[in-house]
């Protein structure tokens, strides 16, 4: 149970950074934290005491494997995280070019 709560805490930490930090880069770091929290949760879900990595190195293996599915899911969500982080950083760079600041309280040209 403890690892799951730790994951949730990490998730909330990331959410805290996104909601309360003013620097765009710190917000992006907050997103990375949230992603890692979910990835870690996936890894914990698949974990099994005493089991080995799910790779077939010879035919007829009989040992217990950890659940390979969450690992595949983590890989996919890492790829998605890569795409979102790259897009966000691109946004951050272009915003810096236009506004000359990373402070979101000063980036307010839209009303409402």
């Amino acid at each position: 149970m403890v690892p799951f709560i730790a994951c949730l805490l990490l998730f909330l930490l990331g959410l805290y950074a996104i909601v309360l930090k003013r620097n765009i880069i710190k917000i992006i770091i907050g997103f990375s934290l949230m992603e890692y929290a979910v990835n870690l949760l996936f890894a914990f879900i698949g974990f099994k005491q005493g089991a080995i990595a799910p790779i077939i190195t010879r035919l007829g293996m009989t040992q217990d494997f950890v659940d390979p599915l969450p690992q595949a899911l983590v890989l996919t969500s890492i790829v998605i995280g890569l795409a979102t982080t790259a897009l966000m950083l691109a946004f951050a760079m272009r915003i810096y070019e236009k506004y000359h600041t990373f402070d979101i309280t000063e980036i307010r040209r839209l009303r409402g």
Partner: peptide, 22 residues
């Protein structure tokens, strides 16, 4: 369009949308 307002609203949208996705 990559004008200043467009980037700003795009980033705002992305932050909210990604929180939803996560």
């Amino acid at each position: 369009g990559t004008r200043a307002e467009e980037l700003e609203s795009g980033f705002k949208y992305m932050v909210m949308g990604e929180v939803g996705s996560l």
